[in-house]
């Protein structure tokens, strides 16, 4: 008797837990050979709402963690991903990559996580400044996380696109709600399983699968989302998102890069989702003498 194969049900990741979608719906994308990739949650707008609530709740403690500790946690993600490399390679191949391409994509993803882990306690030094002003003030600018950032992951990439967009955002102390690639969702959910076992506090990264067209309007109009990162390539979708974002003046960033290139990473992916806070600190300036600052 032949064994009945179990098709994995991939669940979404909200607030450090793996619920099924509130709507109870699912879809079954297929690969080039027509094989079903898995049963994937078709998340609804209420899942988006729940994810934003979870992300908001996590902002305070995540942004207040020491930069060094955030770096440690990000590094831990890389370690855990290294340990589950084989599973990711297998999933990428199942979704249509060659073995060689899959292996190099996973390796690159790990390297990219380590790269941003390193940045955690360094970007602040680079983007902050002490500003020369013409009054008796010590004037300085520091970067602060924006808060909850919505991320629409690239459609044509399962792992590296997601990692390249999410990591710099959380590196800077933001929390995220990610809409995974609709056609290639497997690695997103498996990545959530990696996050779950790697000290990342619940709610810092929330990952939803399903129809981007259905969820993007909810995410982009949501008043409690502070910024959006669009990784797709459709200018009409981007326009719609930008229009929706006007509602609460969300900042919108659109990146279309080949994330598989080794240099598709950098400080600006971190600093884009930072607000610059400038402080005017009055100082004593007796008789025109220079101050002690």
């Amino acid at each position: 008797m032949s064994r009945l194969e179990i098709v994995k049900t991939y669940k979404i990741y909200i607030g450090g837990q793996f619920p099924r979608t509130e709507s109870g719906r699912y879809y079954s994308p297929v690969n080039k050979e027509g094989k079903v990739l898995g049963n994937i949650c078709l998340s609804s707008r209420k899942d988006v709402r729940n994810a934003v609530v979870a992300a908001r709740k996590a902002v305070g403690s995540w942004s207040e963690r020491s930069a060094f500790n955030r770096g440690q946690i990000l590094y831990r993600i890389a370690e855990m991903l290294e340990g589950r490399k084989a599973q990711f390679v297998e999933e990428l191949q199942f979704q249509g990559s060659s073995k060689q391409a899959a292996e190099s994509e996973v390796n690159l993803a790990i390297d990219r996580i380590v790269y941003y882990a390193g940045w955690c306690d360094k970007y602040q030094v680079i983007v902050s400044s002490v500003n020369p002003v013409a009054s008796s003030h010590f004037n300085f600018s520091v970067a602060e996380p924006m808060g909850v950032v919505g991320i629409i992951a690239p459609e044509n990439s399962s792992l590296i696109g997601l990692v390249s967009l999410v990591l710099p955002v959380i590196c800077g102390g933001n929390t995220v709600v990610v809409l995974a690639s609709e056609k290639l969702p497997l690695c997103a959910v498996t990545f959530a399983e990696v996050l779950h076992s790697s000290d990342v506090p619940g709610g810092v990264i929330n990952i939803l699968t399903g129809s981007t067209d259905e969820m993007a309007p909810t995410l982009s109009t949501h008043m409690d989302v502070n910024a959006l990162v669009y990784g797709g390539s459709d200018p009409l979708k981007l326009k719609e998102i930008q229009e929706n974002a006007v509602l609460n003046v969300k900042r919108v960033f659109a990146y279309s890069t080949d994330w598989k290139k080794a240099d598709a990473q950098g400080l600006h992916y971190i600093s884009d989702v930072q607000e610059i806070k400038t402080i005017w600190h009055p100082i004593e300036n007796v008789g025109g003498a220079t101050s002690n600052y």
């Binding site: 988006v48 909810t218 109009t221 949501h222 008043m223 509602l247």
Partner: peptide, 9 residues
């Protein structure tokens, strides 16, 4: 309004 709200407002 049809959109989810934020406590900020």
């Amino acid at each position: 309004t049809g959109v989810y709200q934020s406590p900020d407002y």
